[in-house]
Write a protein that binds this DNA or RNA. Structure first.
Lengths: 335, 335
DNA sequence: CAATTCATTGAAATCGGTTTCAATACAACC
DNA sequence: GGTTGTATTGAAACCGATTTCAATGAATTG
């Protein structure tokens, strides 16, 4: 079954038309007689011909290929269920739009810059999606200087004009905290993250909820980790002397770690300390008790990023869209 | 900073040589005078010129791009930390070899077939890596019929001649079971998986260890799940009437679920029932107590898959390599 | 010194498509 | 009937590199 190489020329010969006509048929151009169209399609079908992606790209300067750049340290891509979920949403929507997805993981800032430089200049990709959020973005300048469309996932620090898709972290923080207040908890702590914009926003939401309910901010109830399980365990340790009766923990992974710490101290969740997490990814269900948490539509963020990117590719003039998707409180057993 | 489009022709003009010469310099061909070489490189450096990847591919029919195909149902890619870890190893090694990685997730058998058909015929990829293991592979025939090099990850059912990289699941099963035997446990159960070759192999290892130690196989101590946390929880429930004092659970995620079931029954790990898992991915550390488990070098599997694939691409004649990487027992608190 | 080899370079073909431009044919209009 | 417009098609240019082939000149050989 030696699939001998089929080119558009061979198809043209078989159908007794020119290459140009075959190309037009395949690209669904108008002004082709039904007869010719049928003849060409028949041959294409019979032979199983498929256009060479590379040649199409070169000629049309549209590759139908987009990139996903994840400039993150090895550890978190590994551990954090955030990335698989996101990737899932992206690949799914990319495929639905007949886009091939290229994946770039970068382990250092420098490597990220190099990766982006190479993408910008080698003409392979129609556009790129970049997970931002936790770095002060030198990349943004680089990207704006190039002419490859891009969309950030998560709000980059200090961005003015770049398109991004994020979740509504402030609303999430407020929702979580307000829920704890309404449940009657008095000393509501937060384990936040000060390494990224989402962490900042969730903390802002926390503050806003306290304020709205006339509660003062108690600095001793505020600590910051880095979203990882380990940091959750440690920060909870730091928090115990302040005797909180509830904690808003800004990632489920940290919540998992925190619960372990509480168990070690023979404190029960939620009887002794209530917990609300953030993410609603797998750790939320793995926790014992299962977490009351804020659900972020991570998959949708990925989907929307692809759609937004494709829109920009098609219509580069449009002003950039900056979107924050709504979040939702999921009540389970931990609060 | 309008990066006006640089082509090899412009570089050639600037350096006052022909396109061909520039190409040779850039590809490090021999027989170029040092003087010309230096002149060209200087211009290239000054202008920041980079070759157009697409054009190179078309002309040389080498894209330096490989694909990773994951034909898996949505759920597991999402949940299972196996895939991120694997992907990590693959992207890392791909990058080190200056390969771009394209990612394809397929949610159904049919979609997988279509994806592979398209890869096989559109000339974009130099080769592909496919995660196998849990499907009876119609894909294998399809791949063998095409002329794109490939490597499987995990041993496909019934493969004869296809190259694959796997971990030594039989040895792992034997190691885990033997350890439990040596620790003096008497009624050693297994929660296996009968949906994939790795599950079969781990079960074979379990049987072999029993046999070597002169223990009879007790059917009531053998149940099968599907590697997921939920199935772990359920199968453990099924297992309790048989009163095991130790369980070899063939994935850490299942072990996590199983431990939850045990806790619900007020059974303690490892005092009442000891557990050995398999994988040594994040769930192993999230479990309480942390899992004694079999470490699979998943990242290495990914790396090796890339290297093997590149070797095949360079040298298609070589007979296919089928490799099983060694595993290792990691002793923690659960047994 | 003529003949041969070898390093160095450029012109042109090539990869497999898309797209522009011009040509033709046929219908519609004044 | 001549003019205009429009649908349909093909020839050829083009995308931006690599690679083949031939040409040149210098170095080596007999």
């Amino acid at each position: 079954m030696a699939t001998q190489k089929l080119t558009i020329q061979k198809i043209a010969d078989l159908a007794q038309v020119s290459k140009a006509t075959v190309s037009r048929v395949l690209n669904d151009y108008p002004h082709i007689s039904d007869e010719v169209k049928a003849r060409v399609l028949k041959i294409v079908h019979e032979t199983g011909y498929r256009r060479n992606h590379i040649a199409r790209t070169l000629a049309s300067s549209r590759s139908n290929m987009i990139g996903l750049v994840i400039p993150s340290d090895a550890q978190s891509v590994f551990t954090d269920p955030y990335f698989p979920t996101l990737t899932q949403g992206i690949t799914y929507t990319a495929k639905r739009n007949e886009q091939t997805l290229a994946l770039f993981l970068c382990e250092s800032e420098e490597e990220g810059g190099e990766t982006i430089a190479s993408i910008l200049s080698n003409g392979l990709l129609d556009g790129i999606i970049i997970t931002a959020d936790y770095k002060d973005y030198a990349f943004e300048k680089q990207l704006l200087a190039g002419n490859v469309p891009f969309v950030f996932i998560g709000r980059p620090f200090d961005t003015v004009c770049s398109p991004y898709i994020d979740t509504d972290n402030q609303a999430g923080g407020e929702l979580a905290t307000a829920y704890l207040i309404e449940q009657g908890y008095q000393r509501i702590a937060i384990i936040g993250s000060d390494k990224n914009t989402s962490g900042d926003d969730r903390y802002i939401g926390y503050q806003r909820a306290l304020e709205k309910h006339g509660r003062a901010l108690d600095e001793s109830l505020v600590v910051f980790g880095d979203y990882s399980m380990e940091s959750g365990a440690q920060r909870m340790e730091d928090l115990l002397p302040a005797k909180p009766d509830a904690v808003f923990i800004t990632s489920d992974a940290m919540a998992l770690g925190a619960i372990r710490t509480l168990h070690r101290h023979n404190l029960r969740v939620p009887e002794d300390i209530a917990i609300v997490g953030f993410d609603d990814l797998s750790p939320a269900l793995q926790a014992d008790p299962q977490l009351t948490t804020i659900r972020q539509p991570i998959g949708d963020v990925g989907s929307l990023a692809v759609e937004t990117l494709l829109e920009i590719i098609r219509n580069p003039e449009r002003p950039p869209r900056q979107i924050a998707l709504p979040v939702e409180l999921i009540v389970r057993a931990s609060a």
